[in-house]
Lab assay of single mutants.
Amino acid sequence: SPEVQIAILTEQINNLNEHLRVHKKDHHSRRGLLKMVGKRRRLLAYLRNKDVARYREIVEKLG
């Protein structure tokens, strides 16, 4: 489901952010981070168009 995919991506994004705080010059990982953020944004847009209630619920849960 989109909610699960968004939750997994959010966790991976948070982990990668911590990694990049330590390894500032790791541009390869930064590119992966940007791809993940874009994918999460697309999934959220899809969910917002399909079911606003589910969209609001996941945004509330994940912050």
Rank of each mutant, 00 (worst) to 15 (best):
H27N: 10
E60M: 10
R54K: 14
R30T: 05
P2E: 12
V59N: 02
A45T: 08
L9Y: 03
V59K: 04
N17C: 15
R56K: 11
A7W: 15
N17G: 06
H28E: 13
R40V: 14
R41Y: 09
K39R: 11
R30H: 12
K61W: 15
L34V: 08
N14T: 06
L43D: 00
R21P: 01
L34G: 04
R54Y: 04
L34N: 07
S1T: 09
L44N: 00
I6L: 04
K24C: 13
L44S: 00
L9S: 01
K35V: 12
L34H: 08
Y46G: 05
L34S: 07
Q12G: 05
Y55L: 02
D26H: 11
K50Y: 14
R40C: 07
K25L: 10
T10Q: 03
I13V: 01
L33T: 01
S1F: 15
E57C: 08
N49I: 14
I6Y: 02
H28R: 12
K50L: 15
R54W: 04
K24W: 10
D51K: 02
G32I: 15
K24I: 09
N14C: 09
R41M: 09
H27T: 09
I13L: 02
I8V: 07
H28I: 11
I13Q: 01
Y55M: 02
V52C: 13
P2I: 15
R54S: 07
R48M: 07
L47T: 00
I6F: 03
Q5L: 15
L44Q: 00
R56H: 12
N14L: 09
L9R: 01
L16S: 01
R42Y: 08
H28C: 13
H19W: 15
Y46L: 12
A45C: 14
A7D: 05
H23A: 05
R54G: 04
L9P: 00
I8E: 08
K61S: 12
G63F: 15
L16R: 03
L33H: 03
A45K: 10
R41T: 07
G63W: 15
R48K: 13
R30M: 11
S1H: 09
A45W: 10
H19V: 04
E11M: 12
K39L: 14
L47M: 04
V52P: 15
R56T: 10
I13A: 00
T10G: 02
E11H: 08
L43V: 02
K25G: 13
H27D: 08
H27M: 12
M36T: 03
G32C: 15
R21Y: 04
H23C: 11
G63S: 12
L34P: 01
R41V: 05
R40M: 11
L47D: 00
R42D: 05
V22R: 10
K24A: 10
L34W: 12
Y55V: 02
V59L: 13
G38N: 13
V52I: 14
A45L: 11
S29R: 07
P2C: 15
R31N: 07
R42P: 00
L34D: 05
E60I: 11
T10E: 03
L33Y: 09
V4M: 13
I13E: 00
V59T: 05
N15I: 13
I8R: 11
R41I: 07
G38R: 15
L33E: 01
K35L: 13
K39N: 04
K25M: 11
R42F: 07
G63R: 14
I58F: 05
G63K: 14
Y55D: 01
R31P: 03
I58D: 00
I6K: 00
Y46C: 09
E57V: 06
E11I: 12
T10H: 02
L33W: 06
E18P: 01
K24Q: 10
I58E: 03
K24P: 15
P2K: 06
L47Q: 00
R56Y: 12
Y55C: 03
K50F: 14
A45S: 08
H28Q: 12
I58L: 10
M36F: 04
E57H: 05
H27W: 12
E3G: 03
H23D: 05
L20Y: 04
Q5S: 06
V37M: 13
V37S: 02
L44V: 02
G38E: 15
A53V: 12
E11A: 09
E18W: 08
Y55H: 03
E3M: 05
R40W: 06
A7G: 06
A45M: 10
A53T: 11
I13G: 01
R42L: 09
V52T: 09
H19P: 01
H28D: 13
E3K: 02
R42T: 06
R41H: 08
L44R: 00
R21W: 03
I8Y: 13
E57S: 06
Q5C: 10
G32S: 15
A7R: 09
K39C: 11
V4A: 13
P2L: 15
L34A: 10
I8H: 09
E11R: 09
A7E: 10
V59A: 04
R41A: 12
N15Y: 13
H19G: 02
D51Q: 02
V52H: 11
T10I: 13
K39A: 11
V52Q: 12
L33V: 04
K35W: 12
E60P: 02
Y55R: 01
I13H: 01
L44F: 03
L20I: 08
R30C: 14
K50P: 01
N15D: 09
V52W: 14
V22L: 13
V4Q: 12
K35D: 11
I13T: 00
V52D: 07
K25Y: 12
G38A: 14
R30V: 09
T10N: 04
A7H: 10
S1R: 07
R31F: 08
Q5K: 06
Q5N: 05
R48A: 07
R40P: 00
R56L: 15
N49P: 00
A7C: 15
H23G: 03
Y46R: 09
R54T: 06
K35R: 11
E11L: 10
H19A: 05
Y46I: 13
R56W: 15
L44A: 00
Q5A: 09
E18F: 07
L47E: 00
V52L: 14
A7S: 07
Y55T: 01
L43N: 00
R54E: 03
H19K: 06
R48C: 09
K39Q: 15
Y55G: 01
K50G: 03
N15A: 14
S1Y: 15
L16D: 01
L47I: 07
L34E: 09
H19Y: 14
H23R: 04
I6A: 01
T10R: 01
Q12R: 12
L20F: 06
R31E: 08
S29I: 13
N15H: 13
G32A: 15
A45D: 09
R31A: 11
V4I: 10
V59S: 03
N14S: 05
V22H: 13
L16T: 03
I8D: 05
R31H: 08
